[in-house]
Amino acid sequence: MTTDAMASPSSTVRPGLLSRALSGTFLPVLVVVLGIIAIWYIAAISMNSTFQRSLDARAEATPTTIEFIESTLNQERPVLPSPHQVAENLWDTVFNKKISSKRSLVYHAGVTLAPTLLGFLMGTALGILLATIIVHVLSMEKSLMPWIITSQTIPILAIAPMVILVLDAVGIRGLLPKALISMYLSFFPITVGMVKGLRSPDKMHLDLLRTYNASSWQTFWKLRWPSSLPYLFTSMKVAIAISLIGAIIAELPTGAVAGLGARLLSGSYYGQTVLIWSALLMAAFCAAMLVALVGVADKWVRRRMGEKVEAGS
């Protein structure tokens, strides 16, 4: 085997490199992203052209095609801002402003991320607690589980602003109400995922612990909890994304003071489309980072558990 492999190294390496580049995800993703940006540019040109034409007519200007396209991509308040306009705005508001300044997008992202994370942590804790109860108490499973599933079909996000205002009226203000919305949204996926996860050990493993006369507490920590971790991380990825969405939506009714949601709202009030898009991209970046963070934690825990399993066996 080894001699065969070494006999013709050159013939295997060359197709290997090419096919690896083709079969990997980096190049395809790059192509797709570049494609999206290209479509964006084309859309920006076509969508902004009507306004540009009327501008030119008023100024009685007769621009060449190149000049025309250039000006469609650099309008003050375009229908669809071009990617480089948004990128400039992002760069400007992220790197050229003090973090504490209200003009800094980092500041606004921070305002949104604080309730996102707090709500996510509270939601995860609540979700795990509920799932544990549901797995151990039959009557809770039978009565609560259908409602948990049904409640997911209700557009809770749509009433988030109202919940904020009600809490405001009771005197709960600041970080907590937004975090409560995020918690409310994120505990559902955690509960459903963890019920599945805590039930995931197969019968043989459960029977083994029964033969040891293990208490349900011991069964929980030694079997159910470790085997539920993959499920926990999967649902945590969903939960943290939805938690961010909750925090953004929760900002809408508070009068557009601070936060990514407030930026969206004020951008739409004043017709500053560049502002909306840069807030949107920032939100997308935050979501990607949060999900990636959970992914890293997932990998870390898996590796540790993998080592443990190997050392034990």
Partner: peptide, 9 residues
């Protein structure tokens, strides 16, 4: 078969 570990006959 060409595999990453070399050819398999």
């Amino acid at each position: 078969f060409e595999t990453n570990d070399g050819p398999v006959h």
